[in-house]
Write a protein that binds this DNA or RNA. Structure first.
Length: 151
DNA sequence: CGTTTGACTACGC
DNA sequence: CGCGTAGCCAAAC
């Protein structure tokens, strides 16, 4: 798999971030990666794809009983990335549904409803991490037809 | 020792 | 909006 220069410390950092995701909310591999600065020498655009894979590797490597809520990390399409018809896939879905996360007929969640907006700004600053990429559709793309003027 | 296979995304059709 | 593919690496077969 695509591995970061230092998988051990990278994984620890990823797990720390994932621990911040509250129950009932979901993040994505790409969003987690977006908070971690790209290592030296890694092209930023390339890191958007590589980093997501690295985070996937970190999730795959979560130790049993570590308390890391790995089920709250899914792919950018809003679906569970663990291969279907596997034990892990079913367990992730059941865990999320137990937290109140709903899946549509296509097996996708609604980021606008359950998407995570990242840790508090000071939490990120303490660790020299970047602000996360927002999830879901941009509310700004919705015309002000439904958005009444406040004055 | 050669192949297959990923807990991913962006981009082009 | 759905589908295929590149990118580019380490393990498991």
């Amino acid at each position: 798999m695509y591995s970061p220069p230092d998988p051990t410390s990278y994984n620890r950092l990823v797990w720390d971030i994932v621990r911040q995701v509250p129950a009932g909310r979901v993040s994505t591999y790409g969003q987690i990666a977006s908070m971690i600065p790209p290592p030296d020498g890694v092209d930023e655009l390339q890191y958007r794809r590589l980093g997501a894979r690295w985070v996937g590797g970190a999730m795959h490597a979560v130790p049993d009983g570590s308390g890391v809520p790995w089920q709250r990390v899914i792919n950018s399409k809003g679906e569970i990335s663990v291969r279907e018809r596997t034990e892990g896939h079913l367990e992730q879905r059941l865990r999320l549904e137990a937290e109140g996360v709903r899946f549509d007929d296509a097996g996708r969640v609604d980021f606008d409803a359950v998407g995570w907006d990242g840790p508090a700004a000071d939490w990120l600053a303490e660790r020299e991490l970047l602000p996360p990429r927002p999830l879901g559709k941009r509310p700004s793309s919705d015309p002000d037809a439904t958005q009444p003027r406040l004055f």
